[in-house]
Amino acid sequence: MQRLTNGTWVVVADGEKALFLENEGDAQYPILRVRAVETHDNPPDREQSTDKAGQLGNRAGGTGSAIEETDYHQLERDRFAQDLAERLYKMSQKGRFDRLVIVAAPQTLGVLRSELHKEVQAKIVQEIPKSLTSMPIDKIEQAVLAEMSA
């Protein structure tokens, strides 16, 4: 069982917002303080795309097949996760954290996990696949503590 010790950083993210928190308390009574907040404006897909999905014609004269429409909203969410991985790497190189807990929406966590540098991966003590960015800090503390003591 990992502990949320003093000095552990907790990054809470989804595809549009990231909270960088540091535990100033101890493992039993964490006190998460906000060190940084990063947001990314990502309008709905309908506002980012201009055309409907296309269709490929069949050269033999039969019916064509549909082309799946690009989900620009999801592409931006993935790009945000990639940028977050890069920011965590830079923070790690500067010695900002030695222990890291990542709390992220499952899809964001998947993209983030594949983009994280080995140096950052080595500092991760827990990954929590949940979306908590809209919760107040005290509720995030409770949720992280519950996950880490499970």
Rank of each mutant, 00 (worst) to 15 (best):
Leu109His: 00
Glu147Gln: 07
Asp98Leu: 08
Leu100Phe: 02
Leu145Asn: 01
Thr50Arg: 15
Gly25Gln: 03
Ala85Gly: 05
Ala53Glu: 14
Ala27Phe: 04
Thr108Gln: 06
Asp45Phe: 11
Ala104Asp: 06
Pro136Ile: 07
Asp41Glu: 14
Pro44Lys: 14
Pro43His: 08
Val10Ser: 01
Gly7Gln: 02
Ser92Tyr: 01
Gly61Met: 11
Gln2Lys: 12
Leu75Cys: 03
Gln2Asp: 07
Asp14Asn: 15
Ala81Thr: 04
Ala53Met: 10
Tyr72Asp: 07
Thr70Trp: 11
Tyr72Cys: 05
Thr39Phe: 02
Met135Phe: 13
Arg59Asn: 10
Leu19Pro: 03
Gln28Arg: 12
Leu84Ile: 03
Met148Asp: 02
Arg113Met: 11
Val125Leu: 09
Gln107Val: 10
Tyr89Gly: 10
Val144Ala: 06
Glu68Met: 12
Ala13Thr: 15
Asn58Asp: 15
Arg35Cys: 07
Ala81Trp: 00
Phe97Asn: 00
Asp98Tyr: 07
Phe20Asn: 00
Asp45Gly: 09
Val37Gln: 06
Lys94Asp: 13
Thr70Cys: 09
Gly54Cys: 04
Leu116Gln: 01
Ser149Asn: 12
Met135Gln: 13
Leu56Gln: 14
Arg33Ala: 04
His73Asn: 09
His73Cys: 04
Gly25Ile: 00
Arg79Thr: 05
Ile137Met: 05
Asp83Arg: 11
Asn23Asp: 06
Gly64Thr: 11
Ala13His: 10
Ala36Gln: 12
Glu47Met: 13
Met135Glu: 12
Pro129Phe: 10
Gln93Asn: 09
Arg87Val: 04
Gln93Glu: 14
Gln82Leu: 09
Glu38Asn: 10
Ala36Leu: 07
Ser134Asn: 13
Pro30Cys: 08
Val11Asp: 01
Leu112Ile: 10
Arg33Asp: 00
Phe80Leu: 08
Val120Cys: 07
Val34Cys: 06
His117Pro: 07
Val34Gln: 12
Val10Leu: 01
Ile102Tyr: 01
Thr133Trp: 06
Ile140Leu: 03
Arg79Tyr: 05
Thr63Gly: 11
Trp9Phe: 10
Thr5Cys: 09
Ala18Phe: 03
Leu145Thr: 03
Asp41Leu: 12
Pro129Tyr: 13
Ala60Val: 06
Pro30Leu: 04
Ser49Val: 15
Leu145Phe: 01
Pro43Lys: 09
Val101Gly: 04
